[in-house]
Amino acid sequence: MIVNLYPLKTFKLPIIAECINPDMLKGKTLDDMRRLELWEGNKRRTLGELFKIEISNPASSSENVTIIVNGDVSRVKRIGAGMKSGEIIIKGNAGMHLGAEMHGGKITVYGNALSWAGSMMKGGAIEIHGDAGDYLGAPYRGSKEGMRGGKIVVSGNVGNEAGAYMHKGVIKIYGNAGQFTGFRMRGGTIYVQGSCGGRAGTCMVDGAVIVVGALESAPPTFTFEGVKNKARIDENEAVEASFYLFVGDLTENGVGKLYVARDRNPHLSNYEKLL
C-alpha cells in the first residue's frame, strides 16, 4: 500500500505527527487515517485536517506500507518516530526528530532534515539527500543512550554533535560535519567525506571517526599511533587512503580511533616527527 500525503497549507506552527508512521497506517482505511491525531501548536488536529491523503494500490499487501510525503514538512516533527517497518519518502524538507528511536524500515528525504534526525535510533535506515541539522543520531538530553544500530547516510552537510554517544551502527556524511562529531561515542563508525569541524571524537571511549577531508585540529588529548593505509567503515566497506591514526580520548581512558586523511591535512604533518 502506498499512502500519499499532501500538506493542505504552509505550516506556521510546529506540528507533532507521530502518526506519520507506516506501522500506524497499517491496515487502516482512508477514513481511519484521516481521523489519526496530531498536534498543531497547542491544538489537537487530525491528519485529514492538515494533509490530503491518497491511497494507491490498497489491494497490494497492506502489510507493506510506504508513505510518500509530497511537500515541505520542515515544521512537522517526529515523522516516523519509533517505526519498525515500511518506508517513508519525503519529497521536501523534514522536521525535527525524524525517525527518532526507529527500529526498522527506511526513511528517505529528498531535501533537508532538521536536528535530531535518527535520534536514539536502534535499527533501520535513514537517507537524507540534503543537509541534516545538529545532533544527528544523538540521544535526548541527559541520556547517554546514543544510536544503537542502523545506518544514516547524509549526502549534504551536517551540524554539530553528529553521532554523539553512539554505541553501534554507521553514520556516513558525504558533505562536511560540524564540531564534536562522535562526541563521547562508545562504538560504531562515523565517516565524514568532507571537512570536519574541531573536537571530532572528543571524550570517545571506542568506535571510529574517519575524516577524509580536512580536520580543523586534532584534539590534544589523543595519542598519535602512526599512519594507516585503510580505514574500515563496517564489515563490507573500507576506505583505502593514507590516514593519520589517533587514539583516545585520554581523558576517558578511551581506545577510540580517529582516522584523518593525510593528503588533506598537511597541518598535522608535524605528528610524523613522532614516528
Binding site: 572528543t202 590534544p220 588529548t221 580520548d249 581523558t251 581512558n253
Partner: peptide, 22 residues
C-alpha cells in the same frame, strides 16, 4: 577553552600530552 580543559583533565589523570602547548 575546551582544549585547555581537556588537557588539564588528561594531566589530572596522569596522562602525557604529545603537544607542547594547548
Amino acid at each position: 577553552d575546551y582544549e585547555l580543559l581537556q588537557a588539564l583533565r588528561a594531566l589530572v589523570r596522569d596522562q602525557e600530552l604529545e603537544v607542547d602547548n594547548v
